[in-house]
Nucleic acid binder design. Sequence first.
DNA 1: GCCGTACACAACTAATTGGTTGTGAAACTT
DNA 2: AAGTTTCACAACCAATTAGTTGTGTACGGC
Lengths: 112, 112
Amino acid sequence: MTTDELSLVFAALADPTRRAILERLARGDATVNQLAEPFAMSQQAVSKHVKVLEKARLVQRTRAAQSRPCALDTVRLDAAADWIAEHRRVWADRYDRLDEHLARLRAGEETR
Amino acid sequence: MTTDELSLVFAALADPTRRAILERLARGDATVNQLAEPFAMSQQAVSKHVKVLEKARLVQRTRAAQSRPCALDTVRLDAAADWIAEHRRVWADRYDRLDEHLARLRAGEETR
DNA sequence: GCCGTACACAACTAATTGGTTGTGAAACTT
DNA sequence: AAGTTTCACAACCAATTAGTTGTGTACGGC
């Protein structure tokens, strides 16, 4: 995944309405109107949010008669979690090395 | 962590410059000027990015003479990863249930 | 063929974001 | 005491975002 794509994913996740939409979709596919129902917001506004999620490839849409149901796509969600985990790991390594260093220092003191 | 705090974290992660800053900090603490060095951007612009990261509580700052070194704070990073993992889990459960359902259907067909 | 449902496009507005330059303050160096 | 380094505040600007209303279109039911 490119840097830009990752930015799109995090930006999409940065809005409470969009996260609520994803939570709803995690429980099952839904149409835009179904998604809009719980929000004090126009159908068009929700449609825009869905489009943001679509561009970030967090949701996929299909055709079913006049409705276009939304479905969660977790591939990018995993990639975002991976980015965090990866950099979390580097950070952890750094402190592991610090621990080793301190351990070596302590060992040195003991044999002095 | 509140919804607003989570939004701040994801919004902070949505910028490539800020992610690069976090990557740099994962390898060790740094001052604003050190962070600014690789970027074609003013020191003030980087200072603003750091402030965004600070508000999201992804970095902590300390005092050391006239410099104010930045350090990574991974607590919120973990929380963000947890949010993704949690909703990833709900989605996975849904498909596990679907699998079970399909398995039951298949079993029914076999005994018919 | 006409009506309702489900949705999206366009135009507008207000607020936010990401950058700039200019400046000033705090703390160390000499 | 004067100069340097490190950093942040303020004012400004352009672009983007998050919402609105109004309108149009595609599809299925009657």
